[in-house]
Design a protein around this nucleic acid. Structure first.
Lengths: 242, 242
DNA sequence: CTCGACACAAGAGCAGTGCTCACTTTCGCG
DNA sequence: CGCGAAAGTGAGCACTGCTCTTGTGTCGAG
């Protein structure tokens, strides 16, 4: 269909599309999602605003593209951080991934806001974004799985009323892990983004000062809650990421 | 100065101000913050859009007023839920407050988004909102304090590197509580909003089905992490708050 | 090599926004 | 009772997303 076989026309198209996304990302990073203006992008690119609609049917479609890219960028950063400590213990890897998420969020506040802040009202993320969005989650599941196969996991408590749901989630997310662990993992996943969001959105402002150390401790506790046993050696001080 | 003593003029002013906020809140609830339009509010109130600026110098100021109100509404809901179980154990009260936060968020999604979602970009919440914003936090601190004075608390772990910061936070937030507990409390506070936000913003969509039970369990674990010992009786099923 | 088709681009225009400003009306208070 | 300030008005500016009509540049088949 519109493969490279069609030649020059198609090449130009994907190049312009990329240029639009690039400029849009620039504006997003500079001013935030609400200030992102098609007309401004077109202006900066030296083209008529109407021409932009040949590439993105609407502003929301452009935003969707940026969202997918942001998820991928975050996922990549997390995976890179994980690979850098791939042979460390599960708890270390867990903390490394969490810190990567935090670092990425602090480095790309508006992109983070776009994907984990309030969804732009009146806008519903299409299913397209799901795979890109799952990368960090999969990473965490992988770490826990390794621990499960290796040193083993502590089983978090699970009330009886929640067991059916826990088993359902386990089947869907990680059939090889105990339902208790999967449940705790999902909760920890959400809680991680609570920690990051509160710091990013200023809720910690006159409250938490030593942000990095606080975060590191909190996510270590999260790991503990999932069943990963956190080694109590005083290792946290050295080798800061960022 | 502009007290009620000044009579009719001032009375009319606060009435119109209230009407504007009311209509604005209506639009906020219906369409979200970005769709809230001064002109639409004025239109609905049958006045010229420019007249609105006699009451709110800018759109942001109107939003700020709504934000403060939202914080107060949330705080009130949480306090009411707490008072309803005031003589229960600390863990029950903790869970009740958390559920109240969740219920309020699900019932007022756009208002919740306004205060705990991404702050409207380019907009910085003025210090005015701080007291209203603290109400839920104070409630949680109070519960933990009661437990501390009563049955006692388990001391959460605290790495040595974080102790100075923990002591600083304790001095500022709750000097009568152990620093370990205060630290865990701040983390739990952020994590609570991670749980609520993920559910509200659809991140749990094809993942968690039994939202209420899952949430209840998660926040109970949070309480545990703070040092509140969660009674293992099977009490969770009956007497739902909502 | 020519010519038609079609992707691409441009510009005007519509309806909407926040906000300002000069102006008129109204009404409470000295 | 009359003055002055507060309240309200409407036009207007610069901006937005988006549509529609009107060109153009270019590719590929005849």
């Amino acid at each position: 269909m519109t493969s490279t076989a069609h030649g020059v026309r198609a090449r130009a198209r994907i190049e312009v599309t990329a240029a639009i996304k690039e400029e849009a990302r620039r504006q997003l990073a500079a001013e935030g999602a609400t200030k992102l203006s098609l007309r401004a992008v077109a202006r900066e690119l030296g083209m008529a605003s109407s021409a932009l609609y040949r590439y993105f049917p609407s502003r929301d479609d452009l935003l969707t593209a940026l969202i997918t890219d942001a998820y991928d960028s975050l996922g990549e950063a997390a995976e890179a951080a994980h690979d850098a400590v791939a042979d460390a213990g599960p708890a270390e890897r867990w903390v490394a991934v969490c810190e990567a998420v935090r670092d990425w969020a602090l480095g790309h506040p508006h992109e983070y806001t776009l994907i984990y802040g309030s969804p732009v009202p009146g806008y519903n993320a299409p299913r397209t974004t799901v795979p890109a969005a799952s990368r960090v989650g999969l990473l965490l599941v992988g770490i826990v799985r390794d621990a499960h196969r290796g040193l083993g996991l502590a089983k978090p408590p699970l009330p009886a009323e929640l067991r059916p749901e826990a088993e359902r989630m386990a089947v869907e997310l990680a059939p090889d892990l105990p339902p208790e662990v999967v449940t705790a993992l999902v909760a920890a996943w959400a809680q991680l983004y609570g920690l990051v969001g509160f710091e990013l959105f200023g809720q910690f402002n006159r409250i938490v000062e030593e942000r990095e150390a606080f975060f590191r401790h909190a996510v270590a506790q999260l790991a503990h809650g999932v069943g990963l046993v956190y080694p109590q050696k005083g290792r946290a001080a050295k080798g800061a990421a960022s």
